[in-house]
Amino acid sequence: MSAFLEWLESDARGAGATRVALSFAVFFIAWQLLALLVTNTMIMAPPLAVFKSLWVETQSGAMWKHALATVGVVLLSFPVAVLLGVMIGLALASSKLMTLTASPLLTAMYSVPVVALAPLFISWLGLGLASKFVIVVLVAIFPVIVSTEVALRSTDAHLIEAARSFNARPLQIFTTVTFPFAVPFIVGGVRVAWARALVGVVVAEFFGAFAGFGFAILAAGQTFDTPVLLGYVFVLGILGLIGSVLLHALERHLAPWREELGQ
């Protein structure tokens, strides 16, 4: 047993997948138990009923319509948020004055629930793509800005001094030391941004849309179709997990030395 636990903790082949399988098993068991306790199907549905309704949604084509809307918005706006966020972070890190001036405002905007402004954006930009695009960019951009700025500033001073001792120019120090040092940290920020982007798009769709997971969840909630509601939430969870796993793998790939340091 203890040998198994040790293997489970290790980086061994298959250990990661086993961990994911285990946590899903625990999750489904807890869900099933909860569904046995709460028998009112208007407010709770067991896993099997949820998967059945997901199958029905897929067969009817509703799933694809909603997925196209939601995933389309995210795939369009998320890269823009990452690119803009890195650029703003770079600009902030390049000037102390800019950081000092902008950071109180940034901190305030980071903590404001931008999604609360969703009704406003929808009345300005309409029920279509434009309002969702702006909302997702706004919620996803802040973790990227902050992680970029902090990462660029936290470069190991010894590494910079060593580069300077080889007579590296400021631009060379940036391209060979500061930026490569920052990249894995930025990817960490992008991982946080991905989760926020999914929340952002769903909430935006709550406030008005023609299709999308948020639209479908709202509609299912209003008709007390709990299996469908939970089914779409489950799909969103999977989307979040996929993004997180991929970005975490990228982080590890870019900075294997950080894993060894136990970070």
Partner: peptide, 30 residues
């Protein structure tokens, strides 16, 4: 700093994302 002098620091000042070869080439590439 100039090419007629080079420093070996006490701290580990190698670039962690570069291989031994790329680290040793660093000053030359700069």
């Amino acid at each position: 700093p100039g090419p007629d002098r080079a420093v070996v620091f006490q701290q580990d000042s190698l670039l962690p994302w570069k291989s031994v070869m790329d680290n040793v080439m660093y000053g030359l590439r700069i």
